[in-house]
Structure formats: structure tokens, C-alpha cells
């Protein structure tokens, strides 16, 4: 077993444990922390696959910005006053069974794929910042700029939604 494989299994186990932690935690703040662990594990996978740019972006955007936002919101809302009402046990069971079914079916479907045993090539420089950046600012410069517009509109939307309404709430 090579180092890569050992790391792969470790990171995979970490990601799965983190994911289970997210869905089983009582307090959302723990969920946020578990999710950060998952993101870090996924970033580790990116590094393993020699996709450094995405690994970094993942940590900055997800583990950094997004999870900070989550943490902020969780703290903003005082959930101790309103503990989550647990779902009906049947609904819960149905959810878990549906998830398991999906898992089984997807695995069954994909385990027969002919290219399952294709090796990944991680020795190329495709995932490097230099190559990706060049492509991004040559071929994808217009979508990139448009995504800034998307951010702007998302920001405006968030501000408008989050604005306190002047006693018009019902």
C-alpha cells in the first residue's frame, strides 16, 4: 500500500465520519465544525489528486468564507431558546432508508461501469494554479467577470432579504 493509498483511505474515513457527524449532531454549531472537517478532508483529496488550485480555493471559499458565514448565522440565532423539534421517527426512518436505497442503487449502477479501474493520472500539471489561471483568464474571462455580477446581485439580495422591515411583518 503506497502512501497515496494510505492517505486516501484516511482522508476518506475522515470525510465520511465528518459527514455523519454533520447529520447527527444536536447543536448546529457542532455540525458546522464537522462540516469544516469534511471540507478539509476533501481539500486533502484535491491535493492528493494534484489539483492544488481547487484545494486552496476550497479551503478559502468553503472552509473559510462559507463556514464563517454559517457560524455567524448560528450564533446570530439563539437556538437554545428554540431547540429543534425532532422529526417523526417514521419520517426519519424513511429518510435514512431512502438515502441507503439511493446509495445501493447508485453503487450497483456504477460498479458495472467499464472504466471503473482506470487509474488517475496525477503527474500532469493540469491542476496547477499557473495552468488553470491561464485558462481562466484566456478562455473563461467572460464567465469569470459575469460571476462577479452574480456575487453583486447575491449581495444585494442578501442585504434586502436581511433588512429589518418597518413593522410590516405579519
Amino acid at each position: 500500500m503506497t502512501t497515496t493509498q494510505i492517505l486516501f483511505w484516511l482522508l476518506s474515513a475522515l470525510a465520511i465520519v465528518g459527514a455523519i457527524g454533520v447529520i447527527s449532531c444536536k447543536n448546529p454549531i457542532y455540525g458546522v465544525l464537522w462540516l469544516i472537517i469534511v471540507f478539509f478532508a476533501i481539500s486533502g483529496h484535491y491535493v492528493l489528486m494534484n489539483a492544488q488550485f481547487l484545494a486552496i480555493v476550497n479551503i478559502i471559499v468553503y472552509a473559510g468564507a462559507i463556514m464563517v458565514l454559517f457560524t455567524f448565522v448560528v450564533m446570530f440565532i439563539n437556538l437554545n431558546e428554540h431547540p429543534e423539534i425532532p422529526k417523526n421517527i417514521y419520517v426519519k426512518a424513511a429518510g435514512i432508508i431512502a438515502g441507503l436505497c439511493l446509495l445501493i442503487v447508485l453503487v450497483a449502477a456504477l460498479s458495472r461501469a467499464s472504466e471503473n479501474n482506470t487509474q488517475l493520472r496525477i503527474d500532469t500539471g493540469v491542476g496547477l494554479i499557473k495552468n488553470l489561471g491561464r485558462t481562466l483568464f484566456n478562455d473563461y474571462v467572460v464567465p469569470f467577470e459575469i460571476s462577479s455580477v452574480l456575487f453583486l446581485s447575491a449581495m444585494v439580495g442578501a442585504v434586502i432579504i436581511g433588512k429589518k422591515e418597518k413593522q410590516q411583518t405579519v
Binding site: K87, G95, A98, G99, C101, L102, V105, A109
Partner: peptide, 20 residues
């Protein structure tokens, strides 16, 4: 929303089973 997602998943499972 949960029900919708559940149904979505059920539909997905059925489609995949048919495919299989």
C-alpha cells in the same frame, strides 16, 4: 421541503432501478 426531497430521491431510485 423534506417531503419533496424524499419524493425526488424515490423517483431517482426508481429511474435508476429501471435503468438497471
Amino acid at each position: 421541503v423534506g417531503n419533496y426531497i424524499l419524493l425526488m430521491v424515490v423517483g431517482l431510485v426508481l429511474l435508476l432501478i429501471i435503468q438497471l
